[in-house]
Nucleic acid binder design. Sequence first.
DNA 1: AGCAAATTTCGTAGCGCTGCGATGCAAGCC
DNA 2: GGCTTGCATCGCAGCGCTACGAAATTTGCT
Lengths: 345, 345
Amino acid sequence: MEKLTPRRRRRMQRVTMAEVAQAAAVSPSTVSLYLRKPGQVSPAIGARIAEVVEALGYVPSFVAGGLAAAGSRAVSVIVPTIQNDFFAGTIAALQAMLEPAGFQLLLGNTDYNPSREERLVRTALSWAPAAIVLVGLEHGRGTKRLLLGTPTPVFEIWECGGSPIDTAVGFHHREVGATALRHLAERGRRRLAFLGARMEEDRRARQRADGFTGAAAAAGLTPPLILGTRERASTEAGGRLLAEALAVPGRIDGIACSNDLMALGALFECQRRGINVPGALAVVGFGDLGFSASCVPPLTTIRPPSEAIGREVGRLIQERLGVAEPPDRPGTIDLGFKLVQRRSS
Amino acid sequence: MEKLTPRRRRRMQRVTMAEVAQAAAVSPSTVSLYLRKPGQVSPAIGARIAEVVEALGYVPSFVAGGLAAAGSRAVSVIVPTIQNDFFAGTIAALQAMLEPAGFQLLLGNTDYNPSREERLVRTALSWAPAAIVLVGLEHGRGTKRLLLGTPTPVFEIWECGGSPIDTAVGFHHREVGATALRHLAERGRRRLAFLGARMEEDRRARQRADGFTGAAAAAGLTPPLILGTRERASTEAGGRLLAEALAVPGRIDGIACSNDLMALGALFECQRRGINVPGALAVVGFGDLGFSASCVPPLTTIRPPSEAIGREVGRLIQERLGVAEPPDRPGTIDLGFKLVQRRSS
DNA sequence: AGCAAATTTCGTAGCGCTGCGATGCAAGCC
DNA sequence: GGCTTGCATCGCAGCGCTACGAAATTTGCT
């Protein structure tokens, strides 16, 4: 029984580790060891291997490596949208932490759709990533089941206060809303409104609105007007919602927005209508985006720890690298936020 | 010679395809076939497999699959930065095209650093992606060598006019600059300036500036003032550069910016100084970002085909899926751009 | 020098899956 | 009936690499 047709399989790589080993006159194990832990190989042989790698243009296969090592150097990040400076900042910071360690980011965006989130989590797990990062503490049944059943570390970011699957890194959105309200109250504002985008889907925006309302009650103020829109945050929506708020009887004198982009739109609307900010209307945003410090007037806003979240998660992932067990119990890291007062309030 | 210590290796998966096969009383090949091409398996057996998959919570391993199939369902995307609405839009569109086909995006950002680009390309290739997407036509020596040596399809996006490695999908930035200039000239502006960010690193911003200058010469105008900054585009930088431009003797009456964010900053600066736009100064941006239609005054800008690039690349990747050979010769797809006139000019 | 200990190198057995050809079996044809 | 044809299913040999333990070599110590 001999091979009649020698099976010819499609090859993936041009140069394999075995070829490098042969050219350097060492065993494949040594090449592998050198590539992973150069310190454990004698300098002479190391140099020889390095030379051959360079000469042959060898590129290791993470696919094969991941299979053999039962785990890849990839981190799955699943966010609602990347067209949003909040998450983009976190992702960039995370990437900056992870890149030196040779990690790759696997990106997915759910567009605030739970069933897409589940599909993405499933795909993510198929890659056997070193960790999986997703936004928020609320997930669909199926998603939760998938995540609870995996040994992969799970990081839930940009939210605090619920019960995380593994580790949460974020801050309290209710507290953000309450802070905005207290600030406006301190500035003497009494008739307030909250302008939000995507309030149905974005639980965190809703939490900020709730915190705003709650703090108003605590301060003995008239319940604030809560206005929302289905669309994503934009200056256009901000302008439109402000117009709506102004049309309501009983003149408002202060607003908070779920996003600086909305706040900027409100500022534009004020400019169009000749409303003095902060004289007639105080405006507080959320996000401290690129333009917030230099618009007219500069925007008072609440700065979330976007980059800090990315950095912290990056750090935790590396810390957990070798560790097989998840921590004894789920943990939450509250990174807080900061009110940045500028001239719009 | 018997196994004294039965080698125990770390397992990657909780449930493997073999276990699914056993539970469904079929061979692993059939499970694999069903998962990849359900139509080629009889309905009865297909249903049985589906049931077992669900019951066991089986998640296939793309790592093992990719190794066996010599190629993975991942697409590497390497951009200068994701903190920029331009590229974020392209990535989102690409993701939307690819997600239904089960692809994953591998993201990297170079921060406009060529050596980081090379490192990222190397990492990307290690994943044996179905395609690799990067921004621009200019790459370091090493990067180019890596890309020329791979059978993986390479897409260079957001630029046209050079010689692509494989396929380019973008538009002409020089032409963007020229269009901005011609528009300003038509509106009767004669003393012009161009405000750019990251001009050293961002070749495309430079090309827009060059096109602006070139068209000015062609129109017989005084050579425009070209002002740049090292930092990334921001309203703050836009305001500062406008201040610089206004300080130069010989009053300017029209500006073009390398980015709508810069243009917005210029508008803010005008507002602060009481300069009438477009009366005393016409402003043209680039990007048509979210706020551009609703700022004060609404911004005339040039809209790049951000999403169209993503969609087109997504389409091309799927088209190339089974095909082993790259197209006969490199190709370029010019998606054009559009001047959107609003009230700032 | 002689021996134990430490360090460096190697051989081998998979990781979980897919592609290829083979096999079995029912249907179609002369 | 004997033959081909077509279809569904199966068996097996890897894909390229890493973990593990063992072998070979060097080092340290008396």
